[in-house]
Design a protein around this nucleic acid. Structure first.
Lengths: 246, 246
DNA sequence: GAAAAATGTACATATATGTGAATTTATCTG
DNA sequence: CAGATAAATTCACATATATGTACATTTTTC
């Protein structure tokens, strides 16, 4: 079950992140199609807690810097090492596609850092974006780092759905694909989950964290050169990863 | 009316900002005394939206970097000029007390930047902290920048309460205190709102934004030297504020 | 290695909560 | 400067929602 008012808080924040200017109660209510009274309660709650204020009298609400302060505290812990951002920046620059660092989240994989392609037609992904762990290159690069028991435990919770023509729709299909990936030296996906989308990924263990790097883009651009892209990822990791650490 | 689940989202994030490590459903539920099932729904919602993930399998949830990405976008707009942070940093260093930049939010004043005192006994304030606009030095330094009509409009919404012995409990009392502040050259408060707390503040208009700077600390430390502190604030603003801007 | 304890998940139901309509307050406009 | 228009609040009530209970799964204990 989705907690509506919790989701609404996030939507409001995303709204401000997009518009980047103060908004009045009426504007917000209209934008979301929420009743004024409900919007009023929400804004009042956020204000009361110190997360919203009125920069100028009657010019509307805007988030306080408290969000930033809190987010900084949270992200200080286990920050990604510098070089991982460099990694996806380089990969995106060289391939012209979108590159990301991905982490596990139950049966899903979450994008925790993203550098987007500059191409007009491109894979649009943002930090926080989630995809099924078994039906994507990046996800499978995570699964490769699990023990058999851990993988089994994940499989039990997966709801296998035919997202695309090549989606693996059984545990066996996923395990087979994992074995293929090992043989191949990298993970790949051709529209397993998103239409027209292809990607190459490799595992990226950092300390005891299980991450992966993925480069993804439209099938017609990535498809022909997927092996090259995979090799480039591996080379770039080798180049940037500090030698001392595992 | 307070929107409970909206507040809960904030509480969870604050919880993570404090503990700075992943927490399991059970830990979170116990910490807040929430039912497991409700906690489950909340965490599921936040995860689904891409704001929570599981860094390591079964080691609990933690916020994704999406919070940071969003907060950065939001705060890029109208960032405080560099020198205002320098201002409160210098003031805090020189006085040994807590210094803050404050903005209006209806009948309240919000702390939008804070440098805390290092003293063992100190004014504990964080970004986002809110205090009544009429019963604090910082708030009155904001009111001084309002027109009479704007002030009247604020007064109408204030619920006058006797927070401390010297809290102004009528419009007239506030107006009188404002006139005194002008004569005095700065705003002050002696436990008007918080017990044992005293502070000196002056208006700090930046562009068309109405802000104020305040230095606050325990009455016994600040009290005797309040005039000096106020003078120091004024001098420091003069020193740091770019000459060109108003 | 089996049993116990702890944790995570699903669902029906009573109730806390969101909302439509009414009221107050502010802002245009001629 | 009225009178009109729009925005912000308030409030009682029906309904969407949080939770108690039951069940499944995982981890720990002995």
């Amino acid at each position: 079950m989705i907690v509506r008012q919790a989701a609404n808080v996030l939507e409001i924040m995303e709204f401000f992140a997009q518009t980047r200017k103060p908004a009045t109660l009426a504007e917000i209510a209209d934008h979301f199609g929420w009743p004024r009274s409900s919007t009023f309660n929400l804004l009042a709650t956020l204000s009361e807690k110190g997360y919203l204020y009125e920069p100028r009298p009657r010019a509307g609400f805007y988030p306080t810097p408290r969000w930033l302060a809190m987010a900084r505290l949270i992200s200080e812990v286990e920050p990604l090492p510098q070089w991982t951002h460099q990694l996806i920046a380089d990969l995106s620059a060289e391939t012209g596609e979108t590159a990301s660092i991905v982490a596990p989240a139950g049966v899903m994989a979450v994008f925790i850092d993203v550098v987007e392609s500059q191409a007009a037609i491109r894979y649009f992904a943002t930090i926080g974006h989630r995809v099924p762990i078994h039906a994507t290159a990046s996800g499978r690069a995570l699964l490769l780092q699990y023990s058999q028991e851990e993988r089994d435990s994940v499989y039990r919770k997966i709801e296998f759905r035919q997202y695309g023509p090549s989606t693996p729709i059984s545990i066996e299909a996923v395990e087979t694909e994992l074995r293929n990936s090992i043989a191949r030296g990298y993970c790949q996906s051709f529209a397993d989950y998103s239409r027209d989308l292809a990607g190459a990924a490799i595992p990226l263990p950092i300390g005891d964290r299980r991450l992966s790097v993925v480069v993804a883009g439209p099938e017609f651009r990535i498809g022909p050169k997927i092996a090259e892209v995979a090799a480039l990822i591996a080379r770039t990791v080798d180049r940037l990863r500090p030698k001392a650490a595992a």
